[in-house]
Design a protein around this nucleic acid. Sequence first.
RNA 1: GCCGGGGUAGCUCAGCUAGGUAGAGCGCCGGGCUGUUAACCCGGUGGUCGGGGGUUCAAGUCCCCUCCCCGGCGCCA
Length: 478
Amino acid sequence: MKNTSSSSTLLLPRCTKPWEWGRILFPSLVSILTSMEYTSGAGVTSLAEYMSTRDVKRLEEGSKATVRGWVYRWRDLGKRVFIVVRDSEGILQLVASKGFTPEDVIEKARRASIESSIIAEGVVRRDRRAPGGVELRLTNLEIVGHAEDFPIKGGEGIDYLLDIRHLWIRSRKLTAMWRLRHKAFEIFREFFKKRGYWEVSPPMLTQAAVEGGATLFEVNFFGKKAYLTQSAQFYLEALIFSLERVWTLAPSFRAERSRTRRHLYEYWHLEAEAAWERMDGMMRLVEDLVAYTVGRLVETAHEELEVLGRNVEALEPSRKTPYPRITYEEAINILKRKGVKVEYGDDLGADEERILTEEFETPFFITHFPLELKSFYMKEDPQRPGHALAFDLLAPEGVGEIVGGSEREDNYEVLRKRIEERGYNVDDYQWYLDLRRYGSVPHSGFGLGVERFLMWVGGRDHIRDTIPFPRFRDRIYP
RNA sequence: GCCGGGGUAGCUCAGCUAGGUAGAGCGCCGGGCUGUUAACCCGGUGGUCGGGGGUUCAAGUCCCCUCCCCGGCGCCA
């Protein structure tokens, strides 16, 4: 017995019965067989037109309806069985009661364990006691996939839940977040299309760093060292020489061993770059993007925000632009006035950022950082030597930096000198320098951390709640 | 990389300061219940105390080594 279970843990952790192995090893075959069974039998499915739980709630009292989903709650009161079924649109209560529901259906309802997939047919009834005010009085029920004892019952710790993330993602709050995320992606695309930006596809595999640091994931590229990209910026810069205004939404990878609630090793990066654009214009684009997306999400995702428990009122001020702008120097002075021990030239750390966000109820810009605090490719402000034409956008409510952007250095010699000063290998950046040799143009761009943006809009205090399978803290399973 | 916290039942945790037969709640299993909302009531089930070594008559508890996890910092979006 010991041997059997230990050898099966490799591939089949929870499955000790030999007759169940086939289901795991040949899922597609089994699903074909079972789906044939469902459609050819005299079961519920053969006569049904399925509805979402959302659509059922719009039906008249007494209408017949058939829904498909998973058992979310289950209670047996003896002569009455309550099942709350969950689908991609929401939840709906099913009631099996003696005198109305056939005995064999009540028996099936008793066996419908939490997370079993079911097809249920019944009659619509409006009842205050039902969650959402509508329920289905069961007339027929089919258990499609019986669920073993589901490991999530409530009260589990984060560590355990992350081990079973593939099951945890079914939860209502996380599902609401995947829907919110989808809608945000849609709105981003809509925004850039309206603004005349071309969507482009930069590479994920690259030869060198954008920031030039040791924060990259190394990849063996047929014997050559390559890296997973940490930003599409350089490639977007190359593309503006034909398309002028470009944007992309793609993963970025950072190998820094960060241990905070707002870091991912793999995150989705919304980046844009525009020829002829100066820093001011780029900042206006960023605030328009953020305000537009927040506004559209408040309008179109109120149900998701409600499930997430988000106080939507707090987002209202952020629908209007312009957002406040302060310089780095002003930020330092604000911090000093509040008794924080900082000096001009210090980088703004997490504590400093949080204190600053308390000053504003909308996102706000910090601009004109000392040149040496920022990346080599950022242009020096001719009006204020020693300062970069760079901006960060910080989200309120303690979220902090969600956007970093700048006007780029467009002079070949200046850029080359900056690369050398930082001790980077000029050869690695030659193609990037070339862009300044053939019709260089003033240009600016930015990058927005999608998960951080969703943290703010969705009111989450941890970034893991904004992406289905977060890659952070050395977690790679599942 | 640094600072702090933790690993005991399927899950959440108490027990460790003061060494002496392993505890609670939830879950799970069985039974009951005609409106449950994380249902409730009764009964039952449950452990190589992360791993290794040491001290001791005796170690979850004390000492040493080691692995893993969590909160935060630095860095960033």
